[in-house]
Design a protein around this nucleic acid. Structure first.
Length: 260
DNA sequence: ATGGCTATGTAGCATAGA
Protein backbone atom coordinates (compact mmCIF):
# COMPACT_ATOMS: atom_id res chain seq x y z
CA UNK A 1 0.00 0.00 0.00
CA UNK A 2 1.48 3.30 -1.09
CA UNK A 3 0.36 6.49 0.61
CA UNK A 4 1.57 9.89 -0.57
CA UNK A 5 1.09 13.53 0.35
CA UNK A 6 1.64 16.65 -1.71
CA UNK A 7 0.96 20.31 -1.12
CA UNK A 8 0.12 21.30 -4.69
CA UNK A 9 -0.35 25.06 -4.14
CA UNK A 10 -3.50 25.27 -6.31
CA UNK A 11 -4.95 22.11 -7.80
CA UNK A 12 -6.31 24.19 -10.68
CA UNK A 13 -2.75 24.99 -11.74
CA UNK A 14 -1.18 21.70 -10.72
CA UNK A 15 -3.72 19.10 -11.90
CA UNK A 16 -1.65 18.23 -15.00
CA UNK A 17 1.38 17.65 -12.78
CA UNK A 18 -0.61 15.55 -10.32
CA UNK A 19 -1.78 13.36 -13.19
CA UNK A 20 1.70 13.22 -14.70
CA UNK A 21 3.23 12.25 -11.38
CA UNK A 22 0.60 9.61 -10.63
CA UNK A 23 1.19 8.17 -14.10
CA UNK A 24 4.81 7.46 -13.22
CA UNK A 25 4.21 6.65 -9.56
CA UNK A 26 0.79 5.10 -9.01
CA UNK A 27 -0.25 5.17 -5.36
CA UNK A 28 -3.19 3.81 -3.43
CA UNK A 29 -3.86 7.15 -1.79
CA UNK A 30 -2.64 10.69 -2.37
CA UNK A 31 -3.45 13.45 0.10
CA UNK A 32 -3.43 16.97 -1.32
CA UNK A 33 -3.16 20.30 0.46
CA UNK A 34 -3.75 23.87 -0.68
CA UNK A 35 -6.14 22.84 -3.41
CA UNK A 36 -7.57 26.40 -3.25
CA UNK A 37 -10.77 25.22 -4.93
CA UNK A 38 -14.42 25.32 -3.86
CA UNK A 39 -15.88 21.81 -3.83
CA UNK A 40 -18.12 22.53 -6.83
CA UNK A 41 -15.01 23.20 -8.91
CA UNK A 42 -13.11 20.09 -7.85
CA UNK A 43 -11.86 18.22 -10.98
CA UNK A 44 -13.45 14.92 -10.00
CA UNK A 45 -14.17 13.73 -13.55
CA UNK A 46 -10.62 14.24 -14.79
CA UNK A 47 -9.28 12.32 -11.81
CA UNK A 48 -11.74 9.51 -12.39
CA UNK A 49 -10.60 9.28 -16.00
CA UNK A 50 -7.10 8.72 -14.58
CA UNK A 51 -8.39 5.98 -12.30
CA UNK A 52 -8.73 7.85 -9.02
CA UNK A 53 -11.68 8.52 -6.78
CA UNK A 54 -11.56 11.58 -4.57
CA UNK A 55 -13.06 13.14 -1.49
CA UNK A 56 -12.41 16.77 -0.72
CA UNK A 57 -12.96 19.65 1.64
CA UNK A 58 -12.13 22.83 -0.20
CA UNK A 59 -12.63 26.55 -0.16
CA UNK A 60 -12.04 29.43 -2.49
CA UNK A 61 -8.53 30.93 -2.71
CA UNK A 62 -7.08 29.48 0.50
CA UNK A 63 -6.40 26.12 2.10
CA UNK A 64 -8.42 23.12 0.92
CA UNK A 65 -7.58 19.44 1.32
CA UNK A 66 -8.42 16.33 -0.70
CA UNK A 67 -7.76 12.62 -0.71
CA UNK A 68 -7.39 10.74 -3.99
CA UNK A 69 -7.53 6.97 -3.95
CA UNK A 70 -7.73 4.09 -6.40
CA UNK A 71 -10.46 2.46 -4.37
CA UNK A 72 -13.18 4.72 -3.04
CA UNK A 73 -12.59 6.06 0.45
CA UNK A 74 -15.14 5.40 3.18
CA UNK A 75 -16.04 6.95 6.54
CA UNK A 76 -15.22 10.46 5.35
CA UNK A 77 -14.86 13.15 8.02
CA UNK A 78 -14.43 16.76 6.98
CA UNK A 79 -12.72 19.24 9.30
CA UNK A 80 -11.49 18.93 12.85
CA UNK A 81 -14.28 17.99 15.25
CA UNK A 82 -15.37 20.56 17.80
CA UNK A 83 -15.32 24.28 17.17
CA UNK A 84 -16.41 25.35 13.72
CA UNK A 85 -13.53 26.58 11.59
CA UNK A 86 -13.86 28.47 8.32
CA UNK A 87 -10.41 27.28 7.29
CA UNK A 88 -10.59 23.92 5.59
CA UNK A 89 -7.47 22.11 6.65
CA UNK A 90 -8.39 18.59 7.69
CA UNK A 91 -9.98 15.58 6.04
CA UNK A 92 -10.07 11.98 7.20
CA UNK A 93 -11.16 8.83 5.41
CA UNK A 94 -10.49 5.11 5.28
CA UNK A 95 -8.74 3.51 2.28
CA UNK A 96 -7.86 -0.18 2.06
CA UNK A 97 -8.36 -0.58 5.79
CA UNK A 98 -6.02 2.30 6.67
CA UNK A 99 -7.37 5.41 8.32
CA UNK A 100 -5.80 8.44 6.63
CA UNK A 101 -5.94 11.91 8.13
CA UNK A 102 -4.91 14.62 5.67
CA UNK A 103 -3.81 17.86 7.32
CA UNK A 104 -2.77 21.28 6.18
CA UNK A 105 -1.38 22.74 9.38
CA UNK A 106 -1.51 26.56 9.51
CA UNK A 107 1.69 28.28 8.47
CA UNK A 108 1.88 30.59 11.47
CA UNK A 109 3.50 33.50 9.58
CA UNK A 110 5.83 34.56 12.41
CA UNK A 111 6.22 33.59 16.04
CA UNK A 112 4.82 36.90 17.29
CA UNK A 113 1.67 36.80 15.14
CA UNK A 114 -1.93 35.85 15.89
CA UNK A 115 -1.56 33.22 13.17
CA UNK A 116 1.18 31.56 15.18
CA UNK A 117 -1.16 31.34 18.17
CA UNK A 118 -3.85 29.91 15.88
CA UNK A 119 -1.33 27.36 14.61
CA UNK A 120 -0.48 26.14 18.11
CA UNK A 121 -4.17 26.04 19.07
CA UNK A 122 -4.96 24.11 15.91
CA UNK A 123 -2.19 21.61 16.64
CA UNK A 124 -3.53 21.10 20.16
CA UNK A 125 -6.99 20.35 18.73
CA UNK A 126 -5.42 18.01 16.20
CA UNK A 127 -3.63 16.17 19.01
CA UNK A 128 -6.90 15.54 20.83
CA UNK A 129 -8.53 14.40 17.61
CA UNK A 130 -5.70 11.99 16.76
CA UNK A 131 -5.86 10.50 20.22
CA UNK A 132 -9.49 9.56 19.52
CA UNK A 133 -8.79 8.38 15.99
CA UNK A 134 -6.02 6.08 17.20
CA UNK A 135 -8.44 4.40 19.59
CA UNK A 136 -10.86 3.71 16.77
CA UNK A 137 -8.34 3.01 14.02
CA UNK A 138 -5.09 1.27 15.05
CA UNK A 139 -3.93 1.42 11.42
CA UNK A 140 -3.64 5.19 11.14
CA UNK A 141 -1.59 7.49 8.91
CA UNK A 142 -1.50 11.24 9.49
CA UNK A 143 -0.14 12.89 6.39
CA UNK A 144 0.21 16.36 4.99
CA UNK A 145 1.90 19.71 5.22
CA UNK A 146 2.70 20.14 8.90
CA UNK A 147 4.58 23.40 8.42
CA UNK A 148 7.07 22.21 11.04
CA UNK A 149 10.64 21.00 10.52
CA UNK A 150 11.00 18.40 13.27
CA UNK A 151 14.73 18.88 13.91
CA UNK A 152 17.75 20.82 12.71
CA UNK A 153 18.60 17.92 10.38
CA UNK A 154 15.45 18.90 8.48
CA UNK A 155 16.64 22.47 7.91
CA UNK A 156 19.19 23.62 5.33
CA UNK A 157 20.47 26.44 7.55
CA UNK A 158 19.56 25.72 11.18
CA UNK A 159 21.33 28.82 12.47
CA UNK A 160 19.36 31.13 10.20
CA UNK A 161 16.08 29.40 11.07
CA UNK A 162 16.63 29.03 14.80
CA UNK A 163 13.55 30.19 16.67
CA UNK A 164 11.78 31.15 13.46
CA UNK A 165 8.33 30.00 12.46
CA UNK A 166 8.38 26.38 11.15
CA UNK A 167 11.34 25.63 13.43
CA UNK A 168 10.52 27.20 16.81
CA UNK A 169 10.61 25.12 19.99
CA UNK A 170 6.84 25.42 20.71
CA UNK A 171 6.04 24.16 17.21
CA UNK A 172 8.45 21.27 17.55
CA UNK A 173 6.94 20.46 20.94
CA UNK A 174 3.46 20.49 19.38
CA UNK A 175 4.63 18.07 16.69
CA UNK A 176 6.19 15.89 19.38
CA UNK A 177 2.85 15.93 21.21
CA UNK A 178 1.25 14.50 18.07
CA UNK A 179 3.91 11.78 17.95
CA UNK A 180 3.38 11.08 21.64
CA UNK A 181 -0.19 9.95 20.96
CA UNK A 182 1.45 6.93 19.30
CA UNK A 183 2.77 7.98 15.91
CA UNK A 184 6.12 7.80 14.16
CA UNK A 185 7.74 9.97 11.52
CA UNK A 186 7.89 7.36 8.75
CA UNK A 187 10.76 9.15 7.04
CA UNK A 188 13.00 8.67 10.07
CA UNK A 189 12.28 4.97 10.37
CA UNK A 190 15.00 4.55 7.75
CA UNK A 191 18.51 5.70 7.04
CA UNK A 192 18.17 8.65 4.71
CA UNK A 193 20.58 10.66 2.63
CA UNK A 194 21.48 14.02 4.19
CA UNK A 195 19.76 17.27 3.25
CA UNK A 196 16.41 15.81 2.27
CA UNK A 197 13.74 18.50 2.11
CA UNK A 198 10.14 18.71 0.98
CA UNK A 199 9.75 22.46 0.51
CA UNK A 200 11.91 25.11 -1.14
CA UNK A 201 11.07 28.79 -1.40
CA UNK A 202 10.25 29.95 -4.90
CA UNK A 203 12.59 32.87 -4.43
CA UNK A 204 16.35 33.30 -4.61
CA UNK A 205 17.02 30.01 -6.38
CA UNK A 206 16.28 28.07 -3.21
CA UNK A 207 15.65 24.76 -4.97
CA UNK A 208 18.79 25.05 -7.08
CA UNK A 209 20.76 25.58 -3.86
CA UNK A 210 18.76 22.88 -2.04
CA UNK A 211 17.92 25.54 0.53
CA UNK A 212 14.86 23.74 1.83
CA UNK A 213 13.00 22.44 4.84
CA UNK A 214 11.40 19.07 5.53
CA UNK A 215 7.92 20.07 6.63
CA UNK A 216 5.68 17.53 4.83
CA UNK A 217 5.32 14.30 6.72
CA UNK A 218 3.80 10.85 6.85
CA UNK A 219 3.17 9.91 10.47
CA UNK A 220 2.14 6.32 11.03
CA UNK A 221 0.72 4.55 14.05
CA UNK A 222 2.81 1.89 15.76
CA UNK A 223 0.81 -0.87 14.12
CA UNK A 224 1.10 0.67 10.68
CA UNK A 225 4.73 1.75 10.99
CA UNK A 226 5.66 -1.86 11.77
CA UNK A 227 4.78 -2.66 8.16
CA UNK A 228 6.43 0.45 6.64
CA UNK A 229 9.04 -0.62 4.09
CA UNK A 230 10.05 2.74 2.64
CA UNK A 231 9.55 6.49 2.89
CA UNK A 232 11.00 8.95 0.45
CA UNK A 233 10.67 12.47 -0.86
CA UNK A 234 10.13 12.74 -4.61
CA UNK A 235 12.01 15.88 -5.53
CA UNK A 236 11.58 15.35 -9.26
CA UNK A 237 8.31 17.30 -9.72
CA UNK A 238 9.99 20.31 -8.10
CA UNK A 239 12.23 20.45 -11.21
CA UNK A 240 9.30 20.64 -13.60
CA UNK A 241 8.01 23.76 -15.27
CA UNK A 242 5.79 25.85 -13.01
CA UNK A 243 6.17 23.56 -10.00
CA UNK A 244 4.55 23.57 -6.61
CA UNK A 245 6.99 24.77 -3.97
CA UNK A 246 6.47 21.41 -2.20
CA UNK A 247 7.51 17.93 -3.29
CA UNK A 248 5.46 14.77 -2.79
CA UNK A 249 6.34 12.40 0.04
CA UNK A 250 5.62 8.70 -0.44
CA UNK A 251 5.47 5.92 2.13
CA UNK A 252 5.05 2.25 1.34
CA UNK A 253 3.50 -0.32 3.65
CA UNK A 254 3.50 -4.09 3.34
CA UNK A 255 0.07 -5.61 2.91
CA UNK A 256 -1.61 -6.64 6.10
CA UNK A 257 -1.30 -10.41 6.58
CA UNK A 258 -4.59 -12.16 5.94
CA UNK A 259 -6.43 -12.99 9.14
CA UNK A 260 -6.48 -16.70 9.84
C1' DA B 1 20.44 42.01 0.19
C1' DT B 2 14.72 41.45 5.69
C1' DG B 3 14.58 40.89 -0.66
C1' DG B 4 14.10 37.29 -3.94
C1' DC B 5 8.68 34.18 -6.32
C1' DT B 6 3.95 32.23 -7.11
C1' DA B 7 -1.21 32.02 -6.84
C1' DT B 8 -5.55 34.29 -6.18
C1' DG B 9 -8.92 37.92 -6.69
C1' DT B 10 -9.50 41.25 -9.56
C1' DA B 11 -8.04 44.96 -13.07
C1' DG B 12 -3.11 47.84 -10.41
C1' DC B 13 -2.02 45.88 -6.41
C1' DA B 14 -3.20 43.48 -1.95
C1' DT B 15 -2.84 39.16 0.72
C1' DA B 16 -0.83 34.79 1.78
C1' DG B 17 2.39 31.43 1.67
C1' DA B 18 6.82 29.24 4.51
Amino acid sequence: MKIATWNVNSLRVRLPQVLEWLGGCPVDALALQETKLPDEQFPLEKLREAGYEAVFHGQKTYNGVALLSRRAATEVTRGLPGAHDEQRRCLAATVNGVRIVCVYVPNGQSVDSDKYRYKLDWLARLRDYLEQELQRYPRLAVVGDFNIAPADADVHDPAAWEGQVLCSAPERAALQALLDTGLKDSFRLFDQPPQQYSWWDYRAGAFRRNAGLRIDHVLSSCELSASCTQCRIEAEPRRWQRPSDHAPVVAEFAEQPAKS
